[in-house]
Design a protein around this nucleic acid. Structure first.
Lengths: 242, 242
DNA sequence: CGTGAAGTTGAGTATGCTCAACGGTGGTGG
DNA sequence: CCACCACCGTTGAGCATACTCAACTTCACG
């Protein structure tokens, strides 16, 4: 198991201004009022990550949970021979670290520069005890993630490469919009390898499929990892296999 | 959308003897004592299903949640052209029907004769309000399902046909044992088509891979949908790609 | 027994993988 | 400041795994 990087180890600032948190309405803190959120601030610390920094590894003791406040993270599982499945990309507002049996079920790593809000699991549990609405919110988050996971199983098990890439771009776009960001052009901050490991493809196939969609006039590749969706309807059709 | 079958529509008996429930320790009712579980009995009804009976369809209003008490269920998602992804098989004790946005994210259907315990979602919510330990249990169930889903993504995205079948058999075996049933020989009640749709394979490939594992002396196919694991270690090795 | 569904096996094919080369880009050090 | 290098992305050629289409067998059930 890789040790935590220096960046992950060092909490940036002890004072955590939850009041100013720009993604609070998306997080587990959403149901709390300004006063209640102070209690969260009291138990939380900021964490800064650079691209490639590991946050934790699969199998590690799950003593902390996190909220992404800026940047992009990825979570993944490995096979013994190195094959990798990225099970999700996480954006501001996303929750991270829910563990069933006290150990993380996956590894987490920064894709871009990122900041996270860290809570000791034990202290969060106490807070959940006190605020059932927070626990309800956590259950709602878990239910939503479950639905997302099932959609991803459908993609992995039954969609073609072209359908996978189209679905991926549309999902990224929708998630960006749900965070109040621009969904078109959509920001694609992760590498071709990460995308391949997320969709069950190789980097070459990912690259070829992007080229194919570009050639068909459906998308355009812009600078800075941005993809412009030129024909949204066509991309939807491709995603569903029509 | 297919209408509910007659079998699904008709609650078998209004009196639901939760006290006698043999799988209670596995369910959402686990943390409740004998007295508290009576309240569950008051809001629950039994449902009997025959093989192939639909319980509900994806997109339907999620007004009910269920617990499997006997038999095997499957849940799946469809693409418009009929391609199907089975996202899970459910056995006694398993929970079913958690919905995020008030509609089911998947369809559910009986694989074998099955009985379920049905709760109106609204009434369950009230009960959760009263018994936070029950809500905690539900969160724990959801976390566990999330971990299972991630493991399945790894399988779908990165494992070969042989690895998929080996993993599938081992998981079935472990789940049977966790319910106190015999894990070897393991009961495989679902069709080759269902297995294929669960593992992202065709029925032909499933069949061929069974034959292959049989030829290698790793498993043996017995009557009544039973599979005997002749070499557990070898099957583990195959499952992990060694 | 007859019938239909499920399972198995075979032959040929296609989708996506492997291996390899090349171009662009950003970071580093001379 | 520029040359170098490593990494990422792209493209090409050939190949393998799993799919498609088809025939046949087995089994459950009438």
């Amino acid at each position: 198991m890789t040790p935590l990087s220096e960046a992950a180890r060092r909490p940036a600032r002890a004072q955590s201004p939850c009041q100013a948190c720009t993604v609070r309405h998306l997080t587990v803190c959403a149901p709390l009022n300004d006063q209640e959120v102070q209690e969260v601030a009291a138990i939380s610390q900021n964490v800064e990550m650079s691209p490639g920094d590991p946050l934790f590894d699969e199998g590690e003791r799950a003593s902390q949970v996190y909220n992404v406040t800026a940047g992009t993270m990825k979570v993944y599982k490995l096979l013994s021979d190195g094959r990798r499945q990225v099970t999700g990309f996480l954006f501001p507002g996303d929750f991270l670290g829910l563990a069933n049996n006290d150990t993380y079920a996956y590894s987490a790593e920064a894709v871009t520069h990122a900041t996270l809000c860290r809570f000791p699991r034990a202290k969060l549990d106490k807070l959940l005890e006190r605020y059932p609405k927070m626990e309800k919110r956590l259950l709602s988050i878990a239910s939503h993630e479950l639905a997302v996971a099932q959609e991803q199983m459908l993609l992995l098990g039954r969609k073609t490469a072209k359908e996978k890439i189209a679905s991926f771009l549309l999902t990224l776009s929708e998630r960006a919009e749900s965070r109040g960001q621009t969904g078109n052009p959509v920001s694609v901050p992760m590498s071709r390898t990460d995308i391949g490991d997320y969709l069950g493809l190789t980097t070459e196939t990912v690259s070829r499929t992007f080229t194919n969609l570009r050639g068909g006039g459906t998308i355009a590749l812009r600078n800075g990892g941005k993809v412009e969706i030129l024909d949204v309807d066509a991309l939807h059709d491709v995603a569903q296999g029509d």
